[in-house]
Protein backbone atom coordinates (compact mmCIF):
# COMPACT_ATOMS: atom_id res chain seq x y z
CA UNK A 1 0.00 0.00 0.00
CA UNK A 2 2.79 2.38 1.03
CA UNK A 3 4.50 1.88 -2.23
CA UNK A 4 1.47 2.87 -4.21
CA UNK A 5 0.86 5.83 -1.98
CA UNK A 6 4.45 6.90 -2.44
CA UNK A 7 4.10 6.57 -6.17
CA UNK A 8 0.99 8.67 -6.19
CA UNK A 9 2.25 11.42 -3.92
CA UNK A 10 5.81 11.85 -5.12
CA UNK A 11 6.49 13.48 -8.45
CA UNK A 12 6.56 11.09 -11.36
CA UNK A 13 9.35 10.72 -13.87
CA UNK A 14 7.30 12.76 -16.27
CA UNK A 15 7.00 15.69 -13.94
CA UNK A 16 10.72 15.53 -13.23
CA UNK A 17 11.28 15.80 -16.93
CA UNK A 18 8.96 18.70 -17.09
CA UNK A 19 10.83 20.51 -14.35
CA UNK A 20 14.07 19.90 -16.25
CA UNK A 21 12.51 21.37 -19.38
CA UNK A 22 11.32 24.40 -17.53
CA UNK A 23 14.72 24.96 -15.97
CA UNK A 24 16.43 24.81 -19.36
CA UNK A 25 14.10 27.17 -21.13
CA UNK A 26 13.95 29.56 -18.16
CA UNK A 27 17.75 29.64 -18.05
CA UNK A 28 17.90 30.54 -21.71
CA UNK A 29 15.38 33.31 -21.37
CA UNK A 30 17.19 34.61 -18.28
CA UNK A 31 20.50 34.68 -20.18
CA UNK A 32 18.89 36.66 -22.97
CA UNK A 33 17.33 39.09 -20.55
CA UNK A 34 20.73 39.66 -18.96
CA UNK A 35 22.21 40.39 -22.39
CA UNK A 36 19.46 42.83 -23.27
CA UNK A 37 19.52 44.60 -19.93
CA UNK A 38 23.29 44.96 -20.03
CA UNK A 39 23.34 46.53 -23.49
CA UNK A 40 20.40 48.80 -22.66
CA UNK A 41 22.08 49.94 -19.48
CA UNK A 42 25.35 50.46 -21.33
CA UNK A 43 23.88 52.65 -24.07
CA UNK A 44 21.65 54.60 -21.72
CA UNK A 45 24.42 55.36 -19.25
CA UNK A 46 26.67 56.65 -22.03
CA UNK A 47 23.90 58.37 -23.91
CA UNK A 48 22.69 60.49 -21.02
CA UNK A 49 26.22 61.65 -20.17
CA UNK A 50 25.81 64.41 -22.75
CA UNK A 51 23.02 65.83 -20.64
CA UNK A 52 24.25 64.99 -17.15
CA UNK A 53 28.01 65.54 -17.47
CA UNK A 54 28.27 68.02 -20.29
CA UNK A 55 25.04 69.81 -19.34
CA UNK A 56 23.66 70.04 -22.82
CA UNK A 57 20.06 71.13 -22.87
CA UNK A 58 17.91 68.21 -24.03
CA UNK A 59 15.62 70.42 -26.06
CA UNK A 60 18.55 72.09 -27.80
CA UNK A 61 19.91 68.67 -28.62
CA UNK A 62 16.66 67.57 -30.21
CA UNK A 63 15.82 70.80 -32.01
CA UNK A 64 19.20 72.29 -32.92
CA UNK A 65 20.36 72.09 -36.51
CA UNK A 66 24.09 72.71 -36.12
CA UNK A 67 26.07 69.56 -35.53
CA UNK A 68 29.70 70.22 -34.80
CA UNK A 69 30.34 68.69 -31.37
CA UNK A 70 34.02 69.58 -31.37
CA UNK A 71 33.45 73.32 -31.30
CA UNK A 72 31.34 75.93 -29.52
CA UNK A 73 28.89 78.37 -31.06
CA UNK A 74 28.90 82.15 -30.56
CA UNK A 75 27.29 81.84 -27.12
CA UNK A 76 29.72 79.23 -25.92
CA UNK A 77 27.31 76.33 -26.13
CA UNK A 78 28.50 73.14 -27.81
CA UNK A 79 26.99 72.68 -31.27
CA UNK A 80 25.09 69.48 -30.84
CA UNK A 81 21.84 69.84 -32.72
CA UNK A 82 20.67 66.41 -33.78
CA UNK A 83 17.57 67.48 -35.67
CA UNK A 84 19.00 67.07 -39.21
CA UNK A 85 19.94 63.46 -38.44
CA UNK A 86 16.61 62.73 -36.81
CA UNK A 87 14.66 64.17 -39.75
CA UNK A 88 16.77 62.31 -42.31
CA UNK A 89 16.54 59.03 -40.46
CA UNK A 90 12.78 59.31 -40.38
CA UNK A 91 12.56 60.37 -44.02
CA UNK A 92 14.59 57.50 -45.43
CA UNK A 93 12.85 55.03 -43.16
CA UNK A 94 9.33 56.09 -44.04
CA UNK A 95 10.08 56.46 -47.75
CA UNK A 96 11.81 53.09 -47.94
CA UNK A 97 8.85 51.45 -46.22
CA UNK A 98 6.38 53.22 -48.53
CA UNK A 99 8.20 52.00 -51.62
CA UNK A 100 8.84 48.51 -50.34
CA UNK A 101 5.35 47.75 -49.06
CA UNK A 102 3.51 47.32 -52.41
CA UNK A 103 6.27 45.08 -53.69
CA UNK A 104 6.42 43.07 -50.50
CA UNK A 105 2.66 42.53 -50.33
CA UNK A 106 2.55 41.63 -54.02
CA UNK A 107 5.27 39.02 -53.54
CA UNK A 108 3.53 37.74 -50.43
CA UNK A 109 0.17 37.43 -52.24
CA UNK A 110 1.90 35.70 -55.12
CA UNK A 111 3.39 33.20 -52.70
CA UNK A 112 0.24 32.54 -50.73
CA UNK A 113 -2.67 32.91 -53.13
CA UNK A 114 -1.70 33.28 -56.75
CA UNK A 115 0.98 30.68 -57.34
CA UNK A 116 1.94 29.03 -54.06
CA UNK A 117 4.02 26.31 -55.72
CA UNK A 118 6.18 28.58 -57.86
CA UNK A 119 6.29 30.94 -54.92
CA UNK A 120 7.72 28.38 -52.56
CA UNK A 121 10.17 27.05 -55.10
CA UNK A 122 11.55 30.27 -56.59
CA UNK A 123 10.54 33.28 -54.58
CA UNK A 124 11.42 31.91 -51.15
CA UNK A 125 15.10 31.48 -52.14
CA UNK A 126 15.03 34.89 -53.82
CA UNK A 127 13.90 36.54 -50.62
CA UNK A 128 16.40 34.62 -48.52
CA UNK A 129 19.23 35.60 -50.83
CA UNK A 130 18.34 39.26 -50.55
CA UNK A 131 18.80 38.88 -46.79
CA UNK A 132 22.15 37.23 -47.29
CA UNK A 133 23.77 39.98 -49.35
CA UNK A 134 25.98 41.86 -46.91
CA UNK A 135 25.23 45.51 -46.27
CA UNK A 136 28.76 46.44 -47.37
CA UNK A 137 27.97 45.06 -50.81
CA UNK A 138 24.63 46.89 -50.93
CA UNK A 139 26.51 50.04 -50.02
CA UNK A 140 29.06 49.67 -52.78
CA UNK A 141 26.49 48.87 -55.41
CA UNK A 142 24.65 51.95 -54.20
CA UNK A 143 27.81 54.01 -54.46
CA UNK A 144 28.81 52.74 -57.89
CA UNK A 145 25.40 52.30 -59.55
CA UNK A 146 22.63 54.24 -57.82
CA UNK A 147 24.47 57.44 -56.87
CA UNK A 148 25.84 58.02 -60.41
CA UNK A 149 22.43 57.20 -61.89
CA UNK A 150 20.70 59.78 -59.68
CA UNK A 151 23.39 62.29 -60.56
CA UNK A 152 22.74 61.71 -64.26
CA UNK A 153 18.99 62.04 -63.85
CA UNK A 154 18.64 64.88 -61.38
CA UNK A 155 22.03 66.56 -61.18
CA UNK A 156 23.75 67.41 -57.92
CA UNK A 157 26.07 64.96 -56.23
CA UNK A 158 23.69 62.02 -56.32
CA UNK A 159 24.07 61.33 -52.61
CA UNK A 160 21.11 61.98 -50.40
CA UNK A 161 17.79 60.74 -49.17
CA UNK A 162 16.75 59.33 -52.55
CA UNK A 163 19.84 57.13 -52.85
CA UNK A 164 19.44 56.04 -49.23
CA UNK A 165 15.79 55.21 -49.83
CA UNK A 166 16.55 53.03 -52.86
CA UNK A 167 19.24 51.06 -51.03
CA UNK A 168 17.08 50.62 -47.94
CA UNK A 169 14.09 49.62 -50.04
CA UNK A 170 15.96 46.56 -51.30
CA UNK A 171 17.30 45.84 -47.83
CA UNK A 172 13.95 45.89 -46.02
CA UNK A 173 12.06 44.13 -48.80
CA UNK A 174 12.85 40.60 -47.51
CA UNK A 175 11.88 41.50 -43.94
CA UNK A 176 8.51 42.94 -44.90
CA UNK A 177 7.85 40.18 -47.42
CA UNK A 178 8.49 37.22 -45.17
CA UNK A 179 6.42 38.71 -42.36
CA UNK A 180 3.61 39.53 -44.81
CA UNK A 181 3.62 35.92 -45.97
CA UNK A 182 3.15 34.85 -42.36
CA UNK A 183 0.36 37.39 -41.99
CA UNK A 184 -1.52 36.15 -45.04
CA UNK A 185 -0.99 32.52 -44.13
CA UNK A 186 -2.51 33.19 -40.74
CA UNK A 187 -5.84 34.14 -42.32
CA UNK A 188 -7.93 30.98 -41.94
CA UNK A 189 -8.71 29.09 -45.15
CA UNK A 190 -12.47 29.32 -44.60
CA UNK A 191 -12.31 33.10 -45.02
CA UNK A 192 -11.13 32.48 -48.56
CA UNK A 193 -13.63 29.69 -49.20
CA UNK A 194 -16.53 31.75 -47.89
CA UNK A 195 -15.66 34.71 -50.04
CA UNK A 196 -15.18 32.63 -53.17
CA UNK A 197 -18.41 30.77 -52.48
CA UNK A 198 -20.24 34.09 -52.45
CA UNK A 199 -19.08 34.54 -56.03
CA UNK A 200 -16.29 37.01 -55.37
CA UNK A 201 -13.35 37.03 -57.76
CA UNK A 202 -9.88 36.28 -56.52
CA UNK A 203 -8.97 39.96 -56.42
CA UNK A 204 -12.15 40.84 -54.56
CA UNK A 205 -11.30 38.13 -52.05
CA UNK A 206 -7.77 39.44 -51.70
CA UNK A 207 -8.79 43.06 -51.43
CA UNK A 208 -11.96 42.84 -49.39
CA UNK A 209 -11.22 39.85 -47.19
CA UNK A 210 -7.60 38.79 -47.05
CA UNK A 211 -5.90 42.17 -46.79
CA UNK A 212 -8.45 43.40 -44.27
CA UNK A 213 -8.25 40.33 -42.10
CA UNK A 214 -4.47 40.40 -42.23
CA UNK A 215 -4.16 44.17 -41.83
CA UNK A 216 -2.83 44.32 -38.25
CA UNK A 217 -0.14 41.78 -38.98
CA UNK A 218 0.71 43.46 -42.28
CA UNK A 219 1.17 46.73 -40.43
CA UNK A 220 3.39 44.90 -37.99
CA UNK A 221 5.45 43.64 -40.93
CA UNK A 222 5.88 47.15 -42.26
CA UNK A 223 6.94 48.50 -38.89
CA UNK A 224 9.44 45.70 -38.53
CA UNK A 225 10.86 46.71 -41.87
CA UNK A 226 11.04 50.31 -40.71
CA UNK A 227 12.86 49.32 -37.55
CA UNK A 228 15.42 47.51 -39.67
CA UNK A 229 15.84 50.50 -41.96
CA UNK A 230 16.21 52.83 -39.01
CA UNK A 231 19.16 50.91 -37.62
CA UNK A 232 20.98 50.16 -40.86
CA UNK A 233 24.36 51.87 -40.98
CA UNK A 234 27.10 50.82 -43.36
CA UNK A 235 25.11 50.81 -46.58
CA UNK A 236 23.34 54.09 -45.85
CA UNK A 237 26.55 55.75 -44.80
CA UNK A 238 28.04 55.20 -48.24
CA UNK A 239 25.20 56.75 -50.21
CA UNK A 240 23.70 59.42 -47.96
CA UNK A 241 26.63 61.84 -48.20
CA UNK A 242 27.13 62.33 -44.45
CA UNK A 243 26.67 66.07 -44.31
CA UNK A 244 25.10 67.15 -41.06
CA UNK A 245 22.69 69.48 -42.85
CA UNK A 246 18.92 69.71 -42.80
CA UNK A 247 17.67 67.92 -45.91
CA UNK A 248 16.03 70.41 -48.28
CA UNK A 249 15.18 67.94 -50.98
CA UNK A 250 15.76 64.31 -51.80
CA UNK A 251 19.08 64.69 -53.56
CA UNK A 252 21.23 66.90 -51.34
CA UNK A 253 23.77 65.22 -49.09
CA UNK A 254 22.56 64.77 -45.55
CA UNK A 255 23.16 62.40 -42.70
CA UNK A 256 21.26 59.80 -40.69
CA UNK A 257 21.70 58.97 -37.02
CA UNK A 258 23.49 55.75 -37.86
CA UNK A 259 25.73 57.18 -40.54
CA UNK A 260 26.89 59.98 -38.26
CA UNK A 261 27.53 57.45 -35.53
CA UNK A 262 29.47 55.05 -37.73
CA UNK A 263 31.53 57.75 -39.42
CA UNK A 264 32.69 59.50 -36.32
CA UNK A 265 32.76 57.15 -33.38
CA UNK A 266 36.26 55.84 -34.07
CA UNK A 267 37.70 59.33 -34.24
CA UNK A 268 36.41 60.62 -30.94
CA UNK A 269 37.95 60.24 -27.52
CA UNK A 270 35.91 58.33 -24.99
CA UNK A 271 34.41 60.43 -22.26
CA UNK A 272 34.59 63.70 -24.19
CA UNK A 273 31.55 65.58 -25.45
CA UNK A 274 31.91 64.60 -29.14
CA UNK A 275 31.92 60.96 -28.10
CA UNK A 276 29.07 61.32 -25.61
CA UNK A 277 26.99 63.15 -28.20
CA UNK A 278 27.35 60.19 -30.53
CA UNK A 279 26.19 57.84 -27.81
CA UNK A 280 23.20 60.10 -27.35
CA UNK A 281 22.39 59.50 -31.02
CA UNK A 282 22.59 55.78 -30.26
CA UNK A 283 20.22 56.32 -27.37
CA UNK A 284 17.75 58.04 -29.72
CA UNK A 285 17.99 55.04 -32.02
CA UNK A 286 17.32 52.75 -29.13
CA UNK A 287 14.31 54.74 -27.94
CA UNK A 288 12.95 54.83 -31.48
CA UNK A 289 13.23 51.10 -31.85
CA UNK A 290 11.37 50.80 -28.54
CA UNK A 291 8.63 53.03 -29.94
CA UNK A 292 8.44 50.94 -33.09
CA UNK A 293 8.07 47.83 -30.98
CA UNK A 294 5.38 49.32 -28.81
CA UNK A 295 3.50 50.29 -31.97
CA UNK A 296 3.77 46.72 -33.21
CA UNK A 297 2.42 45.35 -29.96
CA UNK A 298 -0.38 47.88 -29.88
CA UNK A 299 -1.49 47.18 -33.44
CA UNK A 300 -1.03 43.45 -32.99
CA UNK A 301 -3.24 43.43 -29.91
CA UNK A 302 -6.06 45.33 -31.54
CA UNK A 303 -6.46 43.15 -34.54
CA UNK A 304 -5.87 39.52 -33.76
CA UNK A 305 -8.21 37.30 -35.70
CA UNK A 306 -10.36 35.27 -33.38
CA UNK A 307 -10.38 31.96 -35.11
Amino acid sequence: MDEIQKKLVSPSKASHEDILGRIISYTCIAAIIILVVSILYFITSRGIATFTNDHVNLWRFLSGTDWNPGSLDAKGNPQVGALPMIVTSFSVTVLAALVATPFAIAVALFMTDIAPKTGARFLQPVIELLVGIPSVVYGFIGLTVIVPAIRQLFGGTGSGILAGTIVLFVMVLPTITSLSVDALKAVPGYFRSASLALGATRFQTIYKVLLRAAMPRLLTAIIFGMARAFGEALAVQMVIGNAALMPHNLITPTSTLTSQLTTNIGNTIMGTLPNNALWSLALILLLMSLVFNLLIRFIGKRGTINS
Binding site: T144, A243, P253, S255, T263, G266
Partner: peptide, 14 residues
Protein backbone atom coordinates in the same frame (compact mmCIF):
# COMPACT_ATOMS: atom_id res chain seq x y z
CA UNK B 1 29.29 72.03 -43.85
CA UNK B 2 29.31 69.50 -46.64
CA UNK B 3 29.52 65.83 -47.47
CA UNK B 4 31.80 63.90 -45.16
CA UNK B 5 33.41 60.56 -45.77
CA UNK B 6 35.63 58.77 -43.35
CA UNK B 7 37.89 56.73 -45.55
CA UNK B 8 40.41 57.37 -48.29
CA UNK B 9 38.89 54.66 -50.51
CA UNK B 10 35.37 56.12 -50.46
CA UNK B 11 36.64 59.66 -51.04
CA UNK B 12 38.70 58.48 -53.99
CA UNK B 13 35.69 56.74 -55.56
CA UNK B 14 33.40 59.73 -55.00
Amino acid sequence: TSQEQDSNGTVQKL
